[in-house]
């Protein structure tokens, strides 16, 4: 019950943060036509929807199926949508060397996804999320050293916390019924709060938004 409560908070905070940043980036895209802001819009809308799907899965387990076991495919779908969002953040940093160049390796790399269970797919997607988040955190930290903009540190810290949360969450599968899940969720919530800080530093009142928004 405690874990359900914490996970619900995490997912709802994740949904709110993702959607708010996504809408903000969308307003920026409508006003400037910047492709970077379009990618950030896609990224954060995906992250927000991913968290919402995971919350819906938890709520279904708790209130409809009355089961303590999570519905595998809904969780996997939620994590996959979030990972797509993390991909767009990493892609904005002109990710170049993440995918193998060989067509053979690309096709072979897809095969395991059709042979293994949802639980294994979830673990694979979590590991991809971890790599993308670490990539984004490192690139954002590097940009801080160029621009010295403090908000970049908050974003790097946020992405780093989400990565650490994913890592600890993955360890929870190795040591189930431990405190690791709560630790993972708490670190992820801290990461989302850090990601939200740059929005609070933007002087929103000075912007004349597009009339359609």
């Amino acid at each position: 019950m405690t874990e359900f409560f914490f996970e619900s908070i995490l997912n709802l905070v994740g949904f709110a943060v993702g959607i708010v940043i996504g809408i903000f980036a969308a307003i920026g895209f409508r006003n400037t036509g910047s492709p970077t802001l379009f990618r950030l819009t896609l990224a954060f809308i995906c992250i927000g929807i991913g968290f919402l799907i995971m919350w819906a899965g938890l709520a279904l387990d708790m209130y409809v199926y009355h089961s303590s076991e999570q519905i595998g495919w809904i969780q996997t779908l939620g994590i996959a949508v979030q990972t797509l969002g993390y991909f767009f953040i990493a892609f904005s940093h002109t990710i170049k060397s993440f995918f193998p160049r060989s067509n053979y390796l690309r096709s072979v790399g897809m095969v395991p996804l059709f042979l293994i269970s949802f639980m294994s797919i979830e673990n694979i997607i979590r590991s991809i999320s971890f790599i993308l988040l670490i990539y984004g955190a490192i690139e954002t930290t590097m940009s801080y050293f160029e621009s010295r903009r403090k908000t970049a540190l908050f974003v790097a810290g946020g992405l780093g916390c989400l990565a650490l949360g994913e890592f600890i969450g993955w360890y929870y599968f190795v040591f189930p019924h431990s405190i690791l899940n709560i630790a993972s969720i708490s670190i992820k919530i801290a990461g989302l709060v850090l990601l939200f800080i740059p929005i609070t530093r933007v002087p929103l009142t000075k912007i004349k938004f597009d009339e359609k928004f």
Binding site: T32, T151, K206
Partner: peptide
């Protein structure tokens, strides 16, 4: 002027992510 104001604001936002618009 309005576009430039929006540009500067969202440039700071993108800059927080280590990106340029």
């Amino acid at each position: 002027r309005e576009f430039l104001q929006a540009y500067n604001t969202f440039n700071k936002f993108a800059d927080s992510f280590g990106l340029t618009i």
